[in-house]
């Protein structure tokens, strides 16, 4: 699954803010950390504000702060504000007699069900705990090193 830019920015922002609920962060601070457009992120933050997940704080030291419930809000709740997650919906609707197309949609629906269940099961709080554990590091350590191009070509 490939997230659209706005969705990824929203997840970065909402998780950054939820990690320290009492702290205000500006769009520029968050954008600098991830090397993304502050202008685009500011627009995303306004959308998150309209959805009631963050609140703009005006004045000196202003910015945004998280005002949602990190134990209840899921990744799907955030993603769903910006895009759908259906691979099945992206496939053309099969016409009469197009059984192969219908079969492909049936398989894609299985992927959608799995994707949706995963994204609905991970709250922002759970996601922050996962980030703190850094499980990708042990995964990378266990993975065999990829051969270089020269090694793949052989002698």
């Amino acid at each position: 699954m490939k997230l659209q830019k706005a969705t990824a920015f929203a997840l970065y922002a909402v998780l950054e803010l939820a990690a320290e609920p009492g702290r205000q962060r500006t769009a520029v601070e968050i954008a600098d950390k991830y090397g993304i457009s502050a202008h685009h992120l500011a627009k995303v933050l306004r959308d998150l504000g309209r959805a009631g997940l963050v609140e703009a704080v005006r004045g000196v030291g202003g910015g945004y702060r998280f005002v949602g419930n990190a134990k209840r809000l899921t990744l799907m709740d955030v993603i769903g504000l910006f895009e759908g997650t259906s691979a099945e919906a992206d496939a053309p609707t099969p016409g009469e007699g197009q059984d192969i197309a219908s079969g492909l949609r049936y398989v894609l629906a299985e992927l959608d069900a799995q994707t949706g269940a995963t994204l609905r099961s991970i709250s922002l709080s759970t996601m922050l705990k996962l980030v703190a554990r850094r499980p990708w590091e042990s995964l990378a350590a266990a993975r065999p090193a990829r051969p270089t191009r020269a090694a793949r070509r052989g002698p």
Binding site: T74, A113, Q114, A117, T118, R120, S121, I122, S123, S125, T126, K129, L130, R133, P135
Partner: peptide, 18 residues
Amino acid sequence: ARDNAVIHAFFRSQGMMA
């Protein structure tokens, strides 16, 4: 169960992954 978000979320919150 895939549609049981509550129990799925519980096990996720304990650190379980696919």
